[in-house]
Amino acid sequence: MPYRSKVTLIYLLGFTLDLLNMFALNAAYPALGQELHASVAQLSWTNNLYMLGLTLVIPLGTWMAARLGERQTLLLSLALFGLGSALAGSAGTIDSLLGWRLLQGLGGGLLIPVGQAMAYRLYAPEQRHHLTSLVMMVALLVPALSPTLGGVVVDQGSWRWIFFAMLPLTLMAGVLVLAWLPANQPLPAPQPILDLHLLGQPLLRTAMLVYLCVPGVFIGANLVAALYLQQRLGLSATATGALMLPWSLGALGAIAFVRWRFNLTGPKWLLSAGILIQCAALLWLALPWVAAHHAWLALIFALLGLGSSLCSSSAQSLAFLAIAPEQMGQASALWNLNRQLSFCLGVAVLGAVLNQLLPAPQAFAHTFILAALLTLLPLPMVFKLPGTRALGLITRTH
């Protein structure tokens, strides 16, 4: 197996561990809360503290890789993650579980940016969208499947086995790191923990804004939609969750299309299409007649998946297109911090707006309209992006 493929596999395995750790526990909250006598607020912190640890340590990943070496940093990350998983599965109180979730996050936060930087560095700029498509496939499939797998584990055994099941995968990743990655030497030149000068790179800056305003806004709009569908339209929780199936189909189509057309169509038109599609779907969801025509909801969610994933796939490829190999670690840290921020910001903004507008009859419609307007924010910057020839994509492809 080529060295590039080995590094890619290690990165994707680490990314899978991170996503499993975020989503597999969802189905276990009732059983976990009952056994540990945890309140709803405490249960919410089981995920929040993992995310907090993940976010806090991301800027240190590149700094540590420069001093310890990338191989050693990955091994340290996996060791912390595995230790946190074992201790979380053995937790006897909710307080101890929360502490071990934070430790898991600290381990996972080192793993993702360092692995991502190593993988993207090995791809030529015109080939990086192929790696992005693999990343997006993992990002689509693991969150879709892991809650179901977590539910099976809980029904057949205990919520503790969700954490214990992380250990073989963590060990496998560690063995692959030891077997496949060279024992590289630390870099003697000092580096900043976070190089904010990279935000001056227009492609990276535009991609980060797109991710905040399109996938990030979708995450917040999806929370609002779940409340709207159940509280106002009277759909069951099962029917509401089933709408993620057409969303996933739309997202899958977008990922495949970006992989096929990125070098030929260019990021400008792919991003513009994704922004306008998500905006239109959110405005459609705000129309009052949707309440009487539930059959259209599947199409609306398919369009949301198509628009959001056109942007997330294209933006990640665009972000690293002009990044030099020696800057890839710093760019990866900035990108992952922005990704974590997008997970929180859309929910915080749209949730706060909805809370202020309720119980007004148009509260949900106005919140969806705001989400649509926020989706449009990156469009002026996207229109300024160079074409495929200026970016060198067509020339490199041929």
Rank of each mutant, 00 (worst) to 15 (best):
P2R: 13
P2Y: 00
K6P: 02
T16F: 10
T16I: 12
D18N: 15
N21D: 10
L25P: 02
A27K: 00
A27G: 03
A27F: 01
P30Q: 09
L36G: 00
A41F: 08
T46C: 09
G53P: 05
G53Y: 11
R67P: 02
L68K: 03
G69F: 15
R71I: 05
R71V: 03
T73C: 14
L75T: 08
F81P: 02
S85L: 09
S85G: 08
L87G: 14
R101S: 11
Q104P: 00
G107F: 09
G108V: 04
P113G: 12
G115V: 04
A117D: 07
A117S: 11
M118E: 11
A124N: 02
R128G: 01
T132F: 06
M137H: 03
V138C: 06
P143H: 05
S146V: 02
V153C: 07
G157V: 07
W159C: 03
W161S: 02
I162T: 07
I162V: 05
F164R: 07
L167D: 06
A179D: 05
W180F: 13
P182V: 14
P186R: 14
P186K: 11
A189L: 12
L196H: 01
L198C: 04
P202T: 09
P202W: 06
L204P: 04
N222M: 12
V224D: 10
V224C: 10
Y228G: 06
Q230V: 08
Q230K: 15
Q231K: 13
L233Y: 07
L233W: 08
G234A: 09
A237P: 03
T238I: 10
A239G: 00
G241E: 07
L243K: 11
L243D: 13
M244F: 15
G250S: 11
G250L: 10
G250H: 06
F257S: 12
V258A: 06
W260Y: 12
N263G: 13
G266V: 10
L271C: 00
I277G: 01
Q278D: 09
C279T: 15
A280E: 08
W284M: 13
L285Q: 12
L285K: 09
L287D: 05
L299H: 04
L304C: 15
L304G: 05
L304E: 13
G307F: 09
C311E: 03
S313V: 03
S313G: 03
L318E: 04
L318W: 03
A319F: 01
L321P: 00
Q327I: 02
M328C: 01
M328N: 04
M328V: 03
A331L: 00
W335H: 14
N338V: 03
G346M: 05
G351K: 12
N355T: 14
Q356F: 08
L358C: 05
A371Q: 01
F383C: 02
G387T: 04
T388S: 11
A390P: 01
A390G: 10
L391S: 04
T395K: 11
T397D: 14
